[in-house]
Design a protein around this nucleic acid. Structure first.
Lengths: 234, 234
DNA sequence: CGCGCCGCCTTTGCATACAAATTCTGCCGA
DNA sequence: TCGGCAGAATTTGTATGCAAAGGCGGCGCG
């Protein structure tokens, strides 16, 4: 392969990136950086600089920025470039309202269509998540938590809903990076998941829907509390 | 090569029209073409051909396609180009489920925050819409209908919700182009809007929410009925 | 000394050129 | 005749160059 002398992806950080689909890979990389806070909210994103950091040219980078803008992670201005979308407490509250509603819808739909096998798989993940919770392994807990919620959406058998949920979930993850989930709230969240699993087993859509709303409301309260501690005047 | 009214850019020799924001204008033009059915579902979108038709180069066109893909109007495949997203009856049903849920959320939120002035403006549009309904002027009716629904979302004061709703609304409009709204259903829709306005005046979020769900359910039923008439075997 | 205007520089937007991938076509062999 | 393969042609993906818009600093004027 004529590498054209660009070891482009060759390596800014050691990620072995496949050569194909540069702009797709770029979207993913940038999403990670934004979600994890490596690129803080409000950060101005100058194209050339990002090109250098990521080892791609401006064309795929620009396409990636457009995609991220559609997902609400960056904002674009007229001839003024892009910046990481801000993430105020209001934004988070509004976001949680929407996502809670979407998951509540998914709960109702899922309870009437989900198979025993799918429930079993969710149960499996649930108990693995419990294990990590008991061990205090937060990242693994988060990953399984995400998988469980996603499985619920998928069980709703509504691709439109799945699409829109995936789009929102990037933003939700950003919020989760704000507070360090721990202690009281973590235990409470785990208990809520216990109740949710029970409702799912009973295929009680209304109950599950309500539990999800409460789950998000509680999560939001935690984020807000943590934030107000960090920046009281916020 | 049907010159279906998109030759606006055809005469680039004489006047390159607005200079700015080619890719934004391109998104809008393509959206119109897809929503109105000028580009039918499943239509393969070859970049060079669209460039010629729209009078732009591939760079802004590609960015436009990415944006439309994020909105669910086109689907992209790996090295295999873009095509107009299909629009099956299942898709429409699922879409309506989601949008109805979003608008129901908006209704609850709006009823607790909307100002008298906003209600008055919606009322104004409502009666203008009624006028066009009485005159049988469908396009004007559609436009006002869209404005009213949008005003309701805006009244919810939730930018995230507005974002996501706008994204979905392009797809909803596509569905509206399928059946020719008329007769029975049109009158019913108008009556439903009467009830919705009453609920809004009373700021009864739960009632309005339920009315919206029913409104969408009825609309969906009409689309499905019209479709099954057109293609009985579906 | 403050304000506003003008020119330069940076950055984005667009167009084009090139490389990789896929698909189509026509031929060969079973 | 049908299936499969090789090569060509088409099409997408990426890189780079050029023009225009915005931001910034210096300079002149009030």
């Amino acid at each position: 392969m004529s590498d054209s002398g660009l070891d482009r992806a060759a390596e800014t950080g050691g990620e072995p990136r496949r050569k194909g689909r540069l702009h797709v890979a770029t979207v993913e990389t940038l999403r990670q950086m934004i979600v994890s806070g490596t690129l803080p909210p409000g950060q101005k994103l100058r194209e050339q600089e990002l090109c250098d950091r990521l080892g791609v040219s401006r064309t795929p980078l620009r396409e990636a920025l457009r995609t991220l803008a559609a997902q609400g992670l960056v904002t674009l201005s007229q001839n003024r470039g892009a910046e990481v979308a801000p993430l105020t407490l209001d934004d988070i509250a509004q976001l949680f309202d929407v996502v809670a509603t979407l998951e509540a819808l998914a709960a109702r739909l899922a309870c009437s269509t989900i198979s025993d096998e799918e429930i079993a798989e969710i149960g499996l993940r649930h108990y693995r998540m419990r294990l990590h919770h008991a061990r205090g392994e937060l990242p693994e807990y988060f990953a399984l938590n995400q998988q469980i919620h996603r499985a619920l959406i998928e069980a709703a058998r509504n691709p439109v809903l799945l699409d829109i949920w995936e789009m929102m979930s990037s933003r939700v993850e950003r919020a989760k990076y704000l507070p360090n989930l721990q202690g009281e709230r973590w235990h409470a969240a785990m208990s809520e998941h216990d109740a949710m699993l029970a409702a799912l087993l009973a295929r009680d859509g209304e109950a599950l829907s309500g539990l999800l709303r409460q789950h998000f409301a509680n999560g939001l309260a935690t984020v807000l509390a943590a934030a107000s501690q960090a920046a009281p005047a916020g």
